[in-house]
Amino acid sequence: MSPPSATLPAIAVAGLAKTYGDVQAVAGIDFTVSQGSVTALLGGNGAGKTTTIAMLLGLLKPSAGSITVLGTDMLHDRHAVLPRLNFSSPYVDLPHRLTVRQNLRVFAQLYDVPGPKQRIAQLAQKLDFTTLLDRPAGALSAGQKTRVALAKALINRPELLLLDEPTASLDPDTADWVRGLLEDYRAERGATILLASHNMAEVERLCDQVLMMKQGRIVDRGTPTELIERYGRDNLEEVFLDIARGRGKAAQPAQAETAA
């Protein structure tokens, strides 16, 4: 395991593209994510967020471009870095017939986690599902599943956490509590987090950097405050709507290039 370097970005993406026949899902994007930062991929449905995350994880092969994660070339040596990252996504699930404890035990072994029983107990306590440990994963509510999926994502204490809609299906109280947990984890572990979200309040609260995506391209980027000021809006949701609908300052053609 190579030691983290403060100067090395956690993620460096150059010219990343994915096409399916005539459809361009991601159209040659470039970005870096600093170590220890929280970055959001924002965009409407079909903007290319999940495709980008899938390529970063190595689940999807890019049509072009390069991806370096924690100093490792993901396209040629992804298995060297996979023990150091993890993810959760609403597009995957844990086996329904296994209990929560059994599922986490399997993933603890896959990630070679030392003291798996203690780690599972610790996560269950932290994410408040100790009473659910011996319940089949298929019998959980949507919110409970999200918390267990997050526990799976944290089981190996990842240096890099990729989260696709981490608070989807959660009530506002639980979602807020999960955001607090992610803030704590980042502070304790010095971890880097990249998340895709439709929740603008979440992004404003958690993120140091926002990458605004539309039709497979990064059309703007900056801190939440910078973006709000740049678009002359009160909050990120209004910025999102400007970009999605091509209105206000988003209608000015030079905007994206200037920001990039």
């Binding site: 996979l82 993890n86 996504s89 995957v92 699930d93 844990l94 799976k152």
Partner: peptide
């Protein structure tokens, strides 16, 4: 069993 439970993504992101 992995396909039915939509677990392939979790497995192939693990080591």
């Amino acid at each position: 069993e992995e396909m039915w439970s939509r677990n392939l993504g979790n497995l192939f992101v693990s080591p």
